[in-house]
Design a protein around this nucleic acid. Structure first.
Lengths: 150, 150
DNA sequence: GATAATTCCTATTAAGACGATATGGATTAG
DNA sequence: CTAATCCATATCGTCTTAATAGGAATTATC
């Protein structure tokens, strides 16, 4: 959560280009020029994007990459999970993990972020839609009101 | 966001010990034995905790560390920010960053997590309080309903 | 005051993650 | 056939972070 990885930033810009190309395949070379990145690096990012069926490829001359689906049907969550890794605070399975002390708290935070991101499409991101005030997790029945005071 | 850092996990366990000690100073040595960690490593974590005034120290013989405040007045957010780093997705100041495409989205996610964590105290964590269903960000007035379809 | 217990501080090492590059193979239009 | 293009893997270098090391400063006790 400490900043976006470069792979995600660049990946988003790739998807931006593909989205604006609208059905016309873009070559890695074109993207490399427009994004000022090396072709090889972009290829490395396009590989998982293709395997996850977020983009499609056409091989041979006049080939290139396309968005596999309309941008409105690609969620921010799948992009992030793919290029930045899963949104996890604590992976422990048990309910009382000795390391993180309270898995439910971390799981709630994960759900908070995931539920938010699955609700935002690539089209939303490109359109610059601004989200509203966020919700936040609330403690359950065990919670003692006023425990935090000020 | 890819898993909790070791420093945070161990830091939380330190705070757990101090919380249960209730005013009686604990030495680094004691904590090292009970947590099965090296004294030197714990010292390194206690340093920022003390500077942030989350713990207090007593020097000399019969010295040790104490919680600086009751656990109910220590928020999860400050612990996380201190030992894991700030909760940031994108640090760009401008509203249309070329790298992350849409700062408001990331800022909303940050706020979502921060607002949740500031609401959870160390006491809550130790008590194993389980948070409710999380809220999530919602797109603002520009949002087109049904944009995501399925 | 000497001594021992303890915190305090900085430097250094070790291992892993990640950005980036390099090299070559596979596919296909013309 | 050949050139354009995607496909795949291996490798290198840098930065972050966990962990160690060594010693300085403080203070209770005798």
């Amino acid at each position: 959560m400490n900043g976006l990885k470069t792979s995600l930033k660049v990946g988003l810009r790739i998807l931006e280009l593909l989205s604006r190309a609208e059905g016309h395949p873009l070559t890695v070379r074109e993207m490399a020029v427009r994004l000022e990145q090396s072709e090889k690096y972009l290829e490395q990012l396009l590989l998982p994007l293709r395997r996850a069926r977020i983009v499609t490829s056409v091989r041979g001359p006049h080939g290139g990459y396309l968005l596999a689906r309309p941008a409105a049907y690609i969620t921010l969550l799948e992009i992030v999970q793919l290029l930045q890794g899963p949104v996890t605070f604590c992976e422990c399975p048990s309910r009382d993990c000795k390391e993180c002390l309270s898995p439910p708290i971390w799981q709630a935070l994960e759900s908070c972020v995931e539920a938010s991101m699955v609700n935002v499409s690539l089209a939303d991101v490109l359109a610059g839609h601004t989200p509203d005030i966020p919700g936040k997790i609330a403690l359950g029945p065990n919670w003692v009101e006023g425990g935090l005071g000020i």
